[in-house]
């Protein structure tokens, strides 16, 4: 719930190109990335984006391949919107919002084809590596989509395969590096009072009419998109956001490379 006075001040500010936290409508919060925060994970990163804080962790497990892709492993992405992160988050099975975050983050990474799933094959048709991408939201102040992609792309760098011998994983001995062919990034926009702001805070997300997440590859090709919220976008607004997304994803990519 947001008080009427906060709502009014946000709407008034945004109509003159300003925001409650002092940013302009096209300013992305400068993320802070801390890698290797969980030594028991194959890869991990904590991302602080303003007051949003998430930990992205990667654990590998051995699975069986899909019958139609016998020599490919896979990724499985989950987002845990912990009740510690926000008073409106509740314990229990994943909410539609949590499912949406995890599926959109998954789509940006998967569809960019930065991960060649063939490198995750152990024995064709029998055993593959499954990369479990889990993000835990510790503090929620908006834009979990971009924070999630940033966290996982940071955590994926430097992941090494554990040894696998006689049907057993030897976690202490690592072998080859996981290969990434690119660094996809996402930029999320929110429409408030007919202005489009990048990297919305939680309050802005509560008040927004509509939201668009755009996933871009290194060459600026689009790899994923997701519209949310009960409002709408006009065709010209898509053009505006696509253009602005290039700059923001480039900025984020630069922090990880």
């Amino acid at each position: 719930m947001i008080s009427g006075i906060t709502k009014k001040s946000i709407m008034d500010l945004v109509s003159s190109g300003q925001r409650l936290d002092g940013r302009g409508i096209d300013d992305f919060r400068k993320p802070k990335i801390t890698r290797g925060v969980v030594k028991n994970a194959s890869g991990s990163a904590m991302v602080e984006l303003g007051k949003t804080r998430i930990i992205a962790g990667i654990k590998m497990s051995v699975g069986t391949p899909y019958p139609d892709k016998p020599n490919e492993g896979s990724i499985a992405t989950m987002a845990e919107l912990s009740p510690m992160a926000h008073p409106e988050f509740e314990a229990g099975p994943p909410s539609p919002a949590a499912i949406e975050v995890s599926r959109v983050v998954d789509r940006v990474i998967r569809e960019s084809e930065t991960l060649d799933f063939k490198q995750l094959c152990i024995t064709p048709g029998e055993k593959i590596w499954l990369l479990n991408l889990d993000m835990y939201v510790l503090d929620m102040d908006g834009n979990l989509f971009d924070a999630g992609v940033l966290g996982f792309m940071s955590a994926l760098q430097g992941v090494k395969f554990p040894k696998y011998e006689d049907e057993k994983v030897i976690w202490d001995e690592t072998g080859d590096d996981l290969t990434l062919s690119g660094t996809p990034m996402a930029a999320t926009f929110a429409k408030l009072n007919n202005k489009i702001v990048v990297d919305p805070t939680r309050t802005e997300e509560d008040l927004m009419d509509a939201r668009l997440t755009i996933g871009l590859k290194d060459n600026d090709d689009i790899c994923a998109m997701q519209k949310g919220g009960e409002g709408f976008f006009k065709p010209s607004e898509f053009d505006d956001m696509l253009e602005r997304a290039k700059k923001h994803t480039n900025f984020l990519r630069g922090l990880v490379k």
């Binding site: 569809e111 668009l212 590859k217 689009i222 998109m225 519209k227 709408f232 053009d239």
Partner: peptide
């Protein structure tokens, strides 16, 4: 009639121009 988009979900690989062509 109003030319408003209320759902947009994309996956795969598209250039910006291809997306505009599609719209």
């Amino acid at each position: 009639n109003l030319e408003r988009f209320v759902l947009c979900q994309m996956d795969g690989r598209l250039t910006h121009d291809e997306f505009r062509d599609g719209l």
